[in-house]
Design a binder for these strands. Structure first.
Lengths: 228, 228
DNA sequence: GCATATTTGTCCGTATGTATA
DNA sequence: CTATACATACGGACAAATATG
């Protein structure tokens, strides 16, 4: 019983299965990167981090592999691993992928599970409540959950995983922006509009609104990115 | 100069950058798996493979990690790695993801590069010529290239990579079927239909045909899969 | 059910190659 | 150009888990 507690604390997907040390280390580094404690461009030394975390270089390298696959770290041969520095081209690529996946998933709304549909509405509710309490951190996570829920409408684990990778990378890109409130405030309006259209079963309209949201968010990020 | 030759021979993405030994080992195992030389369910012993390939266990484990991310191998804690055995549920999930990605990318046809459009047509031409020569292996690779080219219409590297992972997994699923000719023969007709519709700029019709192809191919695989 | 053998998980030390000051 | 620092890859070691008889 206590084992599951530990695993749940350790990080993300603590199902019933055991988590490897590399997984735990990767989860720790991931959260630090997404919180901005390890800023983009920083080099992660194998020896320094290994001794600091009390794991061997081998184990740490496996953790690096995991995070490189999630595109949060970049690997340069014989030079080491660095926290990714998102470029304007990255953001364009990222949003092109999101456009295809999320718009495609949203089109499946009529055939989706009731639970999956509810998750979309609940994510927006969460963000709305956050805005009412002036808690803009909640608004941000609500926004992510909203898009995550849209991807999950398709009901494919493989698609969900790729979506989560994309969202983590978007969070990393947002990391370079300090004042995010004005962004989330504007995005919340779009999310509500989309949910309203969906409640009226006007799917095509909702997809069009989602595509418009992507155009705006993409430009927001690109213009606020340094050295774009 | 000769270095680039060697790298090109070694495997997949031999750009300008050097490839690590783990990468080379992973590429070798990958091609063996996709050719069916390492059949689904087989356990890959660390020591046996390591000595056979002349690499250390550590390096081999990194290669395993790479292939596990590509879903060609599955990792069971303290039991080792196995060549993935695709289940019916895997195929359903796989085709759901493909439906979203490829149909979404195909909708972008009007805005796509000319080069990307040409690649779609060339892939079908390749398959047609293969069929004329009774070379059904070429028809199969032409079919893969066709779908790869469709994904590439969107122009997102991240989407392309996920697409390639999905295609590799589909090839693995097809690995359990011996007589593939009748399948590819039928699929070729669909591919030609889609290209013809595209040449007339009837994109919506083409997307609908693609969706229909997915329904058929998915059922083909599910029904021919053992212990479905 | 038990004891043994095999294999994996993790760590360490070292030699070599590579990039940077 | 030399020197330093670091990543890459290897081989060995031991504990833990699993498989086998």
């Amino acid at each position: 019983m206590t084992d599951t507690w530990v695993e749940a604390l350790a990080g993300g997907k603590a199902d019933l299965e055991r988590v490897s040390t590399a997984q735990k280390v990767a989860d720790m580094i991931r959260s630090r990167v997404l919180k901005g404690e390890l800023e983009p461009g920083l080099r992660l030394s194998e020896e320094a981090l290994g001794t600091a975390l009390g794991v061997s270089r081998n184990t740490l390298r496996e953790a690096f592999r995991l995070l490189t696959h999630d595109r949060l770290l970049v690997h340069e041969h014989s030079r080491g691993v660095f926290v990714r520095v998102p470029t304007a081209a990255d953001v364009r690529d990222l949003y092109t992928a999101r456009r295809v996946i999320e718009c495609g998933a949203l089109r499946l709304w009529p055939a989706a599970d009731k639970a999956a549909k509810d998750a979309v509405r609940q994510a927006v509710d969460f963000a709305v409540k956050g805005a009412a309490k002036d808690n803009w951190n909640d608004v941000g996570t609500g926004n992510i959950r909203f898009h995550q829920a849209i991807t999950r409408l398709a009901g494919s684990d493989r698609l969900n995983e790729e979506g989560d990778r994309l969202y983590a990378e978007v969070r990393l890109a947002f990391q370079v922006i300090k004042e995010t409130r004005s962004f989330y405030e504007r995005y919340l309006v779009w999310n509500r509009t989309i949910v309203e259209l969906l409640s009226k079963d006007e799917v095509d309209q909702a997809v069009e609104s989602l595509a418009e949201y992507f155009r705006i968010a993409e430009e927001d990020l690109v213009t606020h990115l340094p050295s774009s």
